[in-house]
């Protein structure tokens, strides 16, 4: 027993050290640029700054945050924005992928066209949409007028602005998600479809009972990415609306920016960052775990 342990030890030790040594470069960078800043933000969220002096305020920043109606508005906006962009862009992306899965020359061209918005940086796309959305003179209103439809003040009406931004987001992201679904579709064995056909399954049944189950891991993965994008992409808000009119398009990340820059309230900005980070972590942890569990269950089957 003792001999075995002695033998086991040296075998284990260098292995662990080697692992650590291999991890070290990325650990150093992760530590410096991810975990250290996270700690700093946590520290900052417990302090207030005024006249170049820093005071400890405990949970004061968090209390101020939850008492701020603008923060509540940003949370609600972000929720609406999440539902209104993730679901349609996933459905569209899946639809595109299914329609363009076979490799013909036409399909390749169409895929490229649908992928094009992904290549345009969000900042540039937003600057373009500033002019597409211009009331009366913009492209959108120009063509609507030809159809005899009265346009709207797309970015200037508090009831419409968030929906305009959602439209832009869907346009921008659907092509990207389509790529993942295309890749997922490649992984479905042809035999499964053949078996389904032999069993007399129609095209809807083949989609429902063959394609979708096979795509489930892809779907969960893309859903997580899409949800992260909802919280981390803010360029279009910055360029197009700055959260307005009347805070109707203010999202969490832009709210953080406002607190830090416009109000110079670094403590509250840090507190808002911690809250959004916690939300994001919880979200990705649950969806990733669910994804794992499902894959395990499928393998067990």
């Amino acid at each position: 027993m003792a001999v075995r342990r002695r033998l086991a030890l040296p075998a284990w030790r260098p292995k662990g050290l080697l692992g650590l040594a291999l991890l070290a470069p990325s650990l150093v960078f992760l530590g410096l640029f991810t975990y250290w800043p996270v700690l700093q933000v946590l520290w900052q969220s417990l302090h207030a700054e005024a006249r170049r002096q820093t005071v400890f305020v405990g949970l004061g920043n968090y209390r101020a945050l939850f008492a701020d109606p603008a923060f509540a508005a940003a949370l609600v906006n972000n929720l609406v924005y999440a539902l209104g962009t993730v679901v349609p862009s996933l459905v569209l992306a899946l639809g595109f992928a299914l329609a363009l899965s076979s490799s013909t020359r036409l399909n390749a061209a169409l895929r490229a066209i649908l992928f094009l918005p992904v290549l345009i940086p969000l900042v540039a796309a937003s600057s373009l949409f500033l002019f597409i959305f211009l009331p009366q003179v913009g492209l959108l209103d120009h063509y609507l007028a030809k159809l005899g439809v009265q346009g709207a003040n797309w970015l200037g009406d508090p009831d419409v602005a968030l929906w305009s931004l959602m439209g832009l987001t869907i346009w921008k992201n659907a092509g990207y998600y389509m790529l993942f679904f295309l890749a997922g579709l490649q992984g479905i064995p042809e035999e499964s479809y053949e078996a389904a056909r032999l069993d007399g399954a129609n095209s809807w049944q083949r989609l429902r009972y063959v394609t979708l189950p096979y795509l489930r891991p892809t779907l969960s993965f893309v859903a997580v990415i899409a949800l992260l994008n909802v919280v981390t992409q803010v360029d279009h808000i910055f360029i197009l609306t700055k959260g307005g009119p009347s805070d109707s398009t203010n999202l969490l990340l832009f709210y953080v920016y406002q607190q830090a820059v416009e109000r110079y309230d670094l403590g509250k900005a840090a507190a808002a960052t911690v809250v959004s980070l916690a939300l994001l972590l919880a979200l990705s942890a649950t969806s990733l775990r669910r994804m794992e569990r499902r894959t395990d269950a499928e393998e067990a089957r």
Binding site: L130, F131, L134, V137, G156, G244, P245
Partner: peptide
């Protein structure tokens, strides 16, 4: 016009005669 108007939108409307 109703709603929020942006600076570039206003100058564009003026320059295009709207």
């Amino acid at each position: 016009p109703a709603g929020e108007q942006k600076g570039p939108g206003v100058s564009t409307a003026f320059l295009s005669g709207q």
